[in-house]
Amino acid sequence: MKWKLVLAALFLNCCAAAGIQAETIHLSAAASMTDACKEIIAAYEAKQPGAKVLANFGASGALAKQIEQGAPADVFISASTEWVQHLADKQMAAPGSEKTFAGNSLVFVGSAKAAVLSMEKLPELKRVAIGNPKNVPAGQYAKQAMEKAGIYAALEQGQKFVLTDDVRHALMYADQGEVDGAFVYATDALLAKTAKTLFTVDAALHEPIIYPMLLTAAGAKNAAAKAFYDYLSGAEAKAALKKHGFAVNP
C-alpha cells in the first residue's frame, strides 16, 4: 500500500510540473524594448501567478535567426517588419498573427558638452556608433537616413563607423564617450546617463519605425502564450509602452 501512495505522489508531482511547463511563455523582443517589456511582463505575471514569461532581448535579426534555428519562442517583437516577414516566409508564424505593437523615432546622441549637430555635419566627426545594419533595425534606419542625406559614403570611406550588436550598445558607447555620437531610438535616449540628444532624424529620411509582433507557430499551440499575446494589445501594455516613450495606436 505504501508504494502505491509513493507512486501516486510522484504522479501528482509530474502533473504539477507539466502544468507549470504549459504556463511558460518564451518572448523574443528587440533590445530597445527591454525596459518596457520587463514592466509589461511583471504586470502580467502579477495578474496571472501561474504564468512565467522568459524573455530574450537582442537585435531583431539575430533573434529571428535564433528562432529559425530552433530557439524556443512563442511571441516575437521586432524593431522592423523585415524580420517578422522573414519568419512568416519561413512558415514559422501563426497565420494572421502579425500586428503592429508600437512605433518609435530615431535620434542622434552624443556628449552633453557637444554643440547641437545636424545630419549634414556628421562627416566632421571621428567616430559614430550605429547598430550593424545587417541585423540591427536601428542601424538599418540610420543607414537609410544617411544615404538619403548623401553622407553615408563619406562616413564609410572614412572608416568612422563603430558597428554594434544592438542599439543599446550604441547608446553605451555614446554614454561612455567612446564615440562622438550614436544613432539610437528616442526611447533609448531617455535612458542615457551622460549623453544627450543632439538632433532628431527627419522621419522622411527612413522607413517608418514600426515594431510588429507575431505569435510563432509553436506559440499558437500554447494557450498561455496566446493569452499573453492578446494581453500585449491591451490597455495595460499600451500604457507601459507610452510610459517608456513608444508611440501606440489608441
Rank of each mutant, 00 (worst) to 15 (best):
K2D: 14
K4C: 09
K4D: 07
L7T: 14
L10T: 11
L12C: 15
N13D: 15
C15H: 00
A16F: 14
A18S: 13
Q21H: 11
A29L: 09
S32V: 15
T34H: 13
C37N: 11
E39R: 12
I40T: 06
A42S: 11
E45A: 09
Q48T: 12
K52D: 00
V53R: 08
L54D: 09
A59P: 06
A62Y: 01
L63M: 05
G70T: 02
P72S: 03
D74N: 09
D74K: 02
F76M: 01
E82F: 12
Q85E: 13
L87W: 00
K90Q: 12
Q91L: 07
M92F: 06
E98M: 12
E98F: 01
K99M: 01
G103M: 03
N104C: 02
S105K: 11
S105W: 07
V107L: 03
F108V: 09
V109S: 12
G110Q: 07
S111C: 03
A114W: 00
L117F: 09
E120Y: 04
L125W: 07
R127W: 05
A129M: 02
I130N: 01
I130L: 10
I130W: 01
P133M: 05
P133G: 05
K134W: 00
Y141Q: 05
K143V: 14
A149H: 06
G150W: 06
I151T: 08
Y152M: 01
Y152H: 10
A153L: 13
K160R: 02
V162S: 13
T164F: 09
R168S: 14
R168L: 15
H169C: 12
A174F: 00
Q176F: 01
G177M: 01
A186G: 15
T187A: 04
D188Q: 08
D188R: 00
L190E: 12
L191H: 12
A192N: 08
K193A: 15
F199K: 07
V201A: 09
A204F: 05
L205R: 06
H206Y: 02
P208N: 10
P208M: 12
I209R: 09
I209Y: 09
P212R: 07
L214G: 00
A217I: 11
G219M: 08
N222R: 15
K226H: 04
K226F: 01
A227M: 03
F228T: 05
D230C: 04
K238V: 14
A240G: 07
K243N: 06
H244K: 14
V248R: 00
N249M: 13
P250W: 05
